[in-house]
Write a protein that binds this DNA or RNA. Structure first.
Lengths: 211, 211
DNA sequence: GTCTATAACAGGATAGAC
DNA sequence: GTCTATCCTGTTATAGAC
């Protein structure tokens, strides 16, 4: 979307006829910051313009679908980054411990050590019920569960239990972000990341003898 | 707040001079439903009036502080109910299994089987940063951790580990509600409640031999 | 205490110059 | 592509009758 086919041209145009004052990636990134802070309804066009350094009309020029399209592209971008930096290592085929370590580093970056909320949570409640975000959010959560389950299987878990554990991990991730925001401390998120290796690599010893 | 000192009088006044068409408790309950669905910014006065069956001006008569006061009283009411029905059993002194069972029933009621979001999450992001909700939310989350920790100690956990486990449980609670909303299924919440007794009453056998 | 009507404002979105 | 200026709907909030 946007000037995908003109990304090089827009560089050449800088300071010329129609200089693109802020790159598309930078705009998306700054919009994301606002949506993550205050959610969809809480984000005003004035605030989004302020954050990007563009005027409202300029934002509408880039996103003809208005605020909704901005949130959609922000969400798509975040999901893409997540797929590249979190899901890919989890779904890889190297040593589980190393794959997990890479995913943990990415998670720490993505949530800035626990100081940034999750878009999947912040965009879950717009008045637009069953709107354009619902499907993406659901798919993203399930893809993350799948990826963790894949890793757990590689770490030796039985398929059934790997899935349950993966659901627990995604639950803990989201919960730790809620608590970090609610308590004003990043400790819950940091504790979650610190516990992750143990949760994945050390299976409970007594429970896997039944099946 | 409100007509606390006139609760009986307001009944006698019904259909007389100033009939209170909807009870205070009922108004708070219906307002809570809206805030839990769409959050603070997402809730408009028109929607709140619609949900309560009152006109906007009538709502302003009852809540002179406007929407913010409504959210404050809704939050205070929910926290009060939580203290009576969830924290009290957890902090009680009967058999841990029975106390937990009662708390679980209350949690299931409170979140309607996982179909209702948590106000502590939904009110965490208003533009009013560090606003009137932050303190209550932080205190409520910490009180819940304390109560679970108290129960874990009663169930035989060591104090340090009881606290860590309690934090994990509150994290799981919040996370399961996020996932339930995000995936459109109450399964994550129901799984959380189903796992709770095991998480509290069955301590890990291998990890408590070090200290 | 509730209502209708309306004020005062902020919000999302657009027009058109450059 | 960006800007200033503006439109118009929806929002919060108030006035005043009953």
């Amino acid at each position: 979307m946007l000037s995908r086919f003109f990304s090089d041209r827009s560089i050449m145009e800088a300071r010329l006829a129609r200089p693109q004052s802020v790159s598309d990636g930078e705009v998306i990134s700054r919009l994301a910051g606002v949506f993550r802070d205050v959610g969809y309804e809480g984000a005003s066009m004035a605030q989004l313009a302020e954050a990007t350094g563009l005027q409202k009309a300029s934002l509408y020029h880039r996103f003809r679908g208005g605020k909704q399209q901005m949130a959609e592209e922000v969400l798509a971008s975040a999901i893409g980054w997540f797929a590249d930096n979190v899901l890919r290592p989890l779904n890889g085929d190297g040593p589980p411990a190393e794959r997990l370590a890479e995913a943990i580093r990415s998670l720490n970056d993505f949530y800035d050590g626990g100081s940034k909320a999750c878009l999947l949570n912040m965009l879950s409640s717009p008045r637009i019920e069953e709107g354009p975000f619902s499907r993406s959010i659901k798919d993203a959560l399930e893809a993350l569960v799948d990826a963790f389950a894949h890793l757990c299987v590689a770490a030796g878990w039985k398929r059934e239990e790997a899935r349950r554990q993966a659901e627990r991990l995604v639950t803990m991730l989201q919960g730790s972000l809620v608590l970090s925001r609610g308590t004003g401390s990043t400790a819950p998120f940091r504790n979650f990341l610190a516990d992750l290796p143990g949760e994945v690599l050390e299976r409970p010893s007594g429970t896997d003898t039944l099946e």
